[in-house]
Amino acid sequence: MKDAVEEKFLFNKTTIGFWLYLMTDCILFASLFATFAVLRHATAGGPSGSQIFEMPLVMAETIILLTSSFTCGLALVALKARKITQMVVALASTYILGAAFLTIEISEFAKLIGEGNGPAHSAFLSAFFTLVGTHGLHIFMGLLWLLVLVAMLMRRGITSKWVRQMTLFALFWHFLDLVWIFIFTVVYLMGVAK
């Protein structure tokens, strides 16, 4: 059995390591944002942002994702208090909200492609699909991770390893929220503004 000092070290090591990884992800997104900023007006005769963005849907996405971050936070609080049922409910809500977000995003993409405004249509659309899609891919990975966490929980219960992983997942999820705020502002709000 590992002692407390070692467990604490393990916890620090993984959390700080994961933080660093998130920083690298941040830079990945920064590169995509920079490219988007450069290509924003390169519509090549195709539609611009203000012509294709459906703001009510985007608003809904934003609220859903923020709420999922909130429920994810609640899950951590419940975990600290060892209220397992509450935690599971909070995690389930996180999952459902995340999945809802992804569904809306995919339907938005599908609609655009269906109308002939796919990513190959102009540099602006390439940048738009890639930036937003990369965030969506991260959400997808997060949902997968959440499933793995639940499977781990059912198999072995709450172990110190599970707590560590859950903490990392929460970090990841909040990070994606933050990125979305930027996407919401830079891509959508600034896109529909004049």
């Binding site: 490219t35 450069v38 390169a42 519509t43 090549a44 540099a123 390439s126």
Partner: peptide, 14 residues
Amino acid sequence: LLGMHFFTADMGGN
């Protein structure tokens, strides 16, 4: 792969 236009010489690529 998908015919996008980030860096192409046409369709707004840079």
